[in-house]
Nucleic acid binder design. Structure first.
Length: 209
DNA sequence: TCATTAACACGGG
DNA sequence: CCCGTGTTAATGA
């Protein structure tokens, strides 16, 4: 695990810290679709993403979900950071978008690692990055039309899967974006007429990025 | 005006 | 036959 850490986080953390992390953490592989965190579960570990992508959802009172953003290589989850320090329950749900590899750092080391300057910088930067992304989410929900939101969502998926051809159904998209299947079908059709995508059964081809 | 819900037809696997 | 898709009509915010 130390080698994996050096390879992916060597540019961020000094070797002494990498050694400490590797001594106390757990290295895990997950498959696409695995749920890493349920709403309300207690958070005991903080994830460092080595490979793959994790999608983060917010859930409303009726358990309808709204996708917030994707975590990618080198990221951690700022909302989890908050949970670890405050020892509160999770406000979000996390699902692996593709096969992924993570390292889980036990929550109790969150604070002791702060003695490393590189760690505290990493934590602050993560908060900052997530805040910026959350502002983008707010913009998107408040000001953007559904067709723009949907197109952005599809482009994100293309980047993460590094494949123009997405294997996904209209109803899954509707769930992730918290709207109805009818609307997604209609907007997708519109995007197709604008030559931005091509529709196939169970598949969506994104033409331009 | 636009989303949601229900309902229906079509077609591929 | 089941499921994904495309569409429409009714209803509501």
């Amino acid at each position: 695990m130390l080698d994996v850490l050096r390879e992916n986080f060597g540019h961020l953390f000094e070797d002494e810290l990498l050694v400490e992390i590797s001594r106390v953490s757990k290295y895990t592989k997950v498959d696409a679709g695995d749920t890493l965190m349920e709403l309300g579960s207690s958070v005991t570990h903080m994830p460092l993403l080595i490979e793959g992508a994790i999608k983060i959802f917010r859930l409303d009172d009726d358990y309808r979900e709204q996708i917030l953003y994707f975590l990618e290589r080198g990221d951690t989850c700022a909302l989890t950071l908050n949970c670890c320090v405050g020892k509160v329950h999770s406000e979000i749900k996390a699902v692996a978008e593709v096969d992924s590899e993570l390292i889980f750092v036990p929550a109790e080391y969150m604070e002791t690692f702060l003695k490393y300057h590189s760690w505290s910088k990493f934590v602050f930067d993560s908060f900052n990055n997530r805040l910026v992304e959350l502002l983008e989410v707010i913009d998107s929900l408040a000001f953007m039309k559904l067709d723009e939101r949907l197109y952005n969502y599809l482009r994100d998926k293309v980047l993460i899967n590094s494949n123009q051809l997405l294997e996904i159904t209209h109803s899954i998209i509707a769930q992730e974006m918290n709207t109805s299947r009818v609307v997604i079908s209609r907007v997708l059709k519109k995007l197709e007429l604008e030559n931005k995508i091509k529709l196939h059964r169970n598949k969506i081809e994104v033409i331009e990025i």
